[in-house]
Each structure stands twice: as C-alpha cells, then as structure tokens.
C-alpha cells in the first residue's frame, strides 16, 4: 500500500486518532520503555514517543537536539517546520526516501521495509516539528 499517496490534507490529529485505534495492540506488544506519558495519546506523548524513535533510528546519521551519539552522514535535523511545512513531504521521506528523494539515497526505506509503523512515523514527525 503506497502510504505516501495518502492525501496531503489529512489532518494530523485525525491520523493520530485513527492510527492509535489500529496499532494500539502492536504498540502494547512492543512495550519498549513505555512510561505513563509515553502511553498517553496527547500531542506531548506523541512528541516523546517520536523522540525515542528518532534516538533509536535517526541519530545514527543525523544530528539533532537531544541526540548524544549523532552521526554526520545525513543533514542535521534543524528548523524542520520551516524546511518541511508540509508533513506529507516528511512522511513520504521517512516511509521510502528512495521514492521521495533520490533512488540511490542511503536513507533506509523505514516505512516500506517495516522498520517503523505508520504511527511511529507520525510520532517522529511530531518530534521533528519541535526541532
């Protein structure tokens, strides 16, 4: 299912709501360091969960505030709201950068290859927008 094709106009809040229902059992199964805040479903919880995922998956290559072992392979994650005002663009990049950016890119196709769930991507975007 080509996730990046989802309408750009889908409101973020709506995505959160729907995806929580769909993927809650999966999240419970993973159960990695789930704190009280992180298991909530407000925007702050999304940011926290996104930050945890970003530290797990993004800092290998990207520098960003909160990363303590950041790599230098990819561009630093800064001013993300200004650089990517449309979340659909970020969503597509995280899902499959080979499609959304350059076919030879080193960035893993996180969504396509199941390294993150669609909900994880929304959380990561929520976190990136705080940078």
């Amino acid at each position: 299912m080509p996730y990046p094709m989802i309408s750009k106009n889908v409101a973020l809040a709506a995505v959160f709501t729907v995806m929580h229902v769909v993927t809650l059992p999966l999240m419970a199964q993973e159960g990695k360091g789930a704190s009280a805040a992180a298991t909530g479903n407000g925007p702050e919880a999304a940011v926290e969960q996104g930050k945890a995922k970003a530290i797990e998956l993004c800092q290998g290559c990207h520098q960003f505030k909160g990363a303590d072992q950041a790599g230098t392979v990819g561009p630093p994650l800064l001013a993300m709201k200004a650089r990517f005002p449309d979340p659909a663009k970020l969503r597509a990049l995280i899902y499959d950068a080979q499609k959304a950016s350059k076919p030879y890119t080193m960035m893993p196709p996180f969504g396509r290859n199941g390294l993150v769930s669609e909900q994880d991507i929304e959380h990561i975007i929520a976190f990136l927008y705080t940078l």
Binding site: G60, C61, G71, V73, Q98, M106, N113
Partner: peptide, 21 residues
C-alpha cells in the same frame, strides 16, 4: 537487509562521515 544499504553507501558516499560515533 531492511536498511537497504549497499557496501557502496557507507564506504564511498559516506566515507569519512560518522555513523553514530
């Protein structure tokens, strides 16, 4: 692999850069 890296990616394109530390 799931990260879809070729030898090329790390050791040509990113040679000299850092993966984590």
């Amino acid at each position: 692999g799931p990260r879809a890296f070729a030898c090329y990616h790390c050791h040509w394109e990113a040679a000299g850069a850092r993966i984590r530390g």
